[in-house]
Structures are given as structure tokens and as C-alpha cells.
Design a protein around this nucleic acid. Sequence first.
DNA 1: GCATCTTATCGTTCTTCGTCGATGAAGACG
DNA 2: CGTCTTCATCGACGAAGAACGATAAGATGC
Lengths: 115, 115
Amino acid sequence: MKTTTPPLESCCAPDDERVDLRPVEGDDADEELASLSKAIGHPARVKILRILVRRNSCICGDIVDELPLAQSTVSQHLKVLKDAGLIRGDVDGPRVCYCIEPRSLRRLKALIGGL
Amino acid sequence: MKTTTPPLESCCAPDDERVDLRPVEGDDADEELASLSKAIGHPARVKILRILVRRNSCICGDIVDELPLAQSTVSQHLKVLKDAGLIRGDVDGPRVCYCIEPRSLRRLKALIGGL
DNA sequence: GCATCTTATCGTTCTTCGTCGATGAAGACG
DNA sequence: CGTCTTCATCGACGAAGAACGATAAGATGC
């Protein structure tokens, strides 16, 4: 049985909770930490992350309404976060549903904690 | 040339261990997190931080010897970290002794943890 | 004094970032 | 079919970043 349009279901896959075994030091870790940090090195992107964390139900372009930026600019910031692996965007009809990638966020916390 | 490390005098003040009561959310926290993250958003600066954390005894320009970068470039990176408040540089005769600012590092961890 | 050592800063060049408006692509809905 | 709506991408432009060599500033030592 198929409903025509599921209202706002969780497009975000559940967190797999797997433990990350990669080291938190060394050249690779340095590059990774720098890359992740650069991605959140802008206030707008921090705000986007917070929005997505707050509503664990994932959100499409309502983010644009919450930020004082043009739609294209927000889209650029979303791309930066997505390229860094911090968020994911799933196409849902004409919209795109963004959600955080819990594994990457945990990885970032581990790397920062390793300092 | 290469001179040995001067006698270990602690230029770094001992960690005051004070608890930071500022919130980890809100516009100010967003700006602060973005600013700190941008500062460590470069592999060379991550390496510098690690060097300073590893030797809790503070280090001057030996950092230059550990990085494959020109002295002026390393100085620039040190300035970025210092402007962000993550490190401190105390003049010690003809040299400058850099050390991490534990409070800022703790603050960064708290902000990241607040995500 | 002068020479030396260490670090910061200046000036330059090149690249990347941030922002916007405009345009394009893909579905949804008449 | 056409028309919205939603979002990504393009092009442009100014601002900021990253790297270097050269130079200046400040302390030490002769």
C-alpha cells in the first residue's frame, strides 16, 4: 500500500552508531580535522548545522527562511557542508531533505577531543 | 643555524582551570565557534597546535623547523592562531615562546560538544 | 659600536571564498 | 500540455587567504 505523498517522514537514515576506529592524530587526521573545521568556519554554516541538529527530523529549504541570505548563497553553504561530509541531502520530490551525518559529527568531536 | 632548546623556563602561565560559563548556543556562540574553527581550518595550523600541545613546555621557532614552510608563512599561521586566542606568544629575549591557551581550547571543545 | 640571531611585517602574486542575481533542471499540479 | 515551486548551478565581482622573498625590529654577544 502506497500513500501518494508521505508527509514529512524521516528521510535521514537512523544513526548506525558504529565506532570510528581511525586515529585522531597523524597527517591524515590533521587534514581531516582541518577540512571539517574549515567547513564550519562560517557563522551561517554553524547556524545551518544547529538547525539540522535541533530538528532531527530533516529539513529541506526552510533553512533559507531562517537565514538572512539569498537562496543561492544558502545553497552554496549547504554544498560546502555536504562536500565536507557533515550533512546529507536526499531528494524528495521537488524538494531536498537535508540532515546531519551523525558519524561525521562524532568524528569531528573525536578529532577535537584528540587535541 | 640550529641551536639547542634553551633551558626550560615556563613562559606559559599555569592553566587557571576556571570554568567557562558562557552559553554554547546562540548568535555569539555561533560566531565564536566559526571563528575558532576557521583558525584551525588549515593543516599547518592543526600541526602547530599539536606541537604546542605535545610539548606542554612552550616552544619558540622550532615550529618552523617542523613544518615544510617558509619562516614568514609559519609566522603568519601563528598570528592567525594568536588572533583567534588559541595560542599565546611571550617574548623571551630574542625569541618568542608560544604556548596554547588552555581556556580557549576548552572553550572550543565545549562549543563543538554543544553541537 | 657592529655583527648575528630570531621573529614580525611588508609587498606581491595567485587562489579561494562569499555573495548576489540570473538561469536551468526536475517534479508536482492544474 | 503549460505553469508553478524548489533547488542547484553559472557568472561576476570584491574580499580574504596562502605562500614566498625581502626587509625591518629587537635582543644578544663580540
